[in-house]
Design a binder for these strands. Structure first.
Lengths: 113, 113
DNA sequence: AGCCTCCTAAAGATTGAACTTAATTAAGCA
DNA sequence: TGCTTAATTAAGTTCAATCTTTAGGAGGCT
């Protein structure tokens, strides 16, 4: 008698948050709705890469998607994120992810040449 | 003038929690100290596999290690885990990880033959 | 209709995570 | 010292995550 699930595939929220990239994306849509394009422009990776990450976040139920014309607008789902807010805010205060992303970029540059 | 870090390597706590296996381990040592052997016996994987996971948790600062004779005793670091407790308890109430581990085991069995 | 713009889907490469088995360290005890 | 128990380290394999490039779909304009 259960209601059919809204999402076909469901992902592990903590696995979704394991990626610094996705945490940065989440931070971008934390307090204001943003289009996929806006988000992609904030990073130094390809557009599809961001699109894929947005999907992971969406399937984990951490962000919501809304279509407006040709754009898709994403924003954080604060209801789902409630029990994680304390941790994320603390982490962002220390700018952990920014440092981690920089370190990873450096590492990639170092090993590729 | 900073104090030298107690851990040589430091890991991402959310990355550490991304693994259902490690979350189950964490649950085991949540309210009582347990030896590595005790923990390993609770799972259907090799001993070194558990040892590696314990290290990840330790380097993420989520568990503490104490040596007692030939044993090593692990327990959850509730200070570090404080901002994540709400989420973990909720997840464990729903037994999400147990189901996920079972599903993954099934999947492995299915695809390997 | 045609042609933008915006974005996702598909396919393939590369990297790293999580396991395996085998070897090693370290403590306790005869 | 040598043997046993307890656990990690090392080396190698497999699989999945994340990126890339290329192709496709859907809405809005003229």
């Amino acid at each position: 008698m259960g209601v059919l699930p809204a999402q076909v595939t469901t992902r592990d929220p903590l696995l979704a948050l394991a990626s610094p990239r996705r945490r940065e994306i989440l931070r971008l849509v934390w307090s204001s709705e943003r289009s996929a394009g806006e988000i992609a422009r904030a990073f130094d990776v390809s557009w599809p890469a961001i699109s894929q990450n947005l999907r992971v976040l969406k399937e984990a139920g951490l962000i919501t998607e809304r279509r407006a014309g040709t754009s898709r607008l994403y924003s954080a789902d604060h209801v789902a994120l409630k029990p994680l807010e304390a941790y994320l805010r603390r982490m962002w205060l220390r700018n952990v992810d920014r440092l981690r992303l920089l370190a990873e970029a450096e590492e990639r540059k170092r090993t590729s040449k």
